[in-house]
Simulated assay, not measured.
Amino acid sequence: MRGVIERSNAYSVYLERELRSDHAGETGAIYIYKGIIAIVKLRKDQELISFAKHHGATEAEHLQLIESIFEAKHRSCLLGPWRIAGWLTGAIPALFGRKAVYATIDAVETFVEQHYQQQIEYLQKNGSHDDLLKLLIRCQADEINHKNEARSKVVSPRPLTLRLWCALVGGGSAVAVLLARQI
Rank of each mutant, 00 (worst) to 15 (best):
M1K: 10
V4Y: 03
I5C: 08
E6A: 13
R7P: 08
S8M: 12
N9M: 12
S12W: 07
V13Q: 02
L15H: 10
L19S: 02
L19C: 06
D22T: 01
T27H: 01
A29I: 01
Y33L: 08
I36R: 04
I39D: 03
V40Q: 01
K41Y: 03
R43F: 13
E47I: 12
I49K: 03
I49H: 00
S50H: 10
A52E: 05
K53N: 14
K53S: 14
E59S: 11
Q64S: 14
Q64L: 13
Q64C: 12
Q64W: 01
I66Y: 01
S68D: 14
H74M: 12
H74L: 15
R75F: 05
C77T: 07
L78W: 06
P81Y: 00
I84C: 09
G86V: 01
G86D: 01
W87K: 09
W87A: 11
L88Q: 03
L88Y: 05
I92H: 02
F96W: 09
R98P: 14
A100W: 08
A103W: 06
A107L: 07
V108W: 03
E109V: 14
T110L: 13
F111N: 02
E113G: 10
H115K: 01
Y116N: 01
Q117D: 05
Q119Y: 03
I120P: 09
L123H: 11
L123Q: 11
S128K: 11
D130F: 13
D131H: 15
L132N: 13
L133Y: 14
A141C: 15
I144H: 11
H146P: 15
R151I: 15
V154D: 09
R158V: 11
P159S: 07
P159W: 00
T161F: 06
L162N: 02
C166W: 04
C166D: 10
C166T: 09
G170S: 08
G170F: 07
G172F: 07
A176N: 05
L178D: 06
L178H: 07
L179N: 03
A180R: 04
Q182E: 12
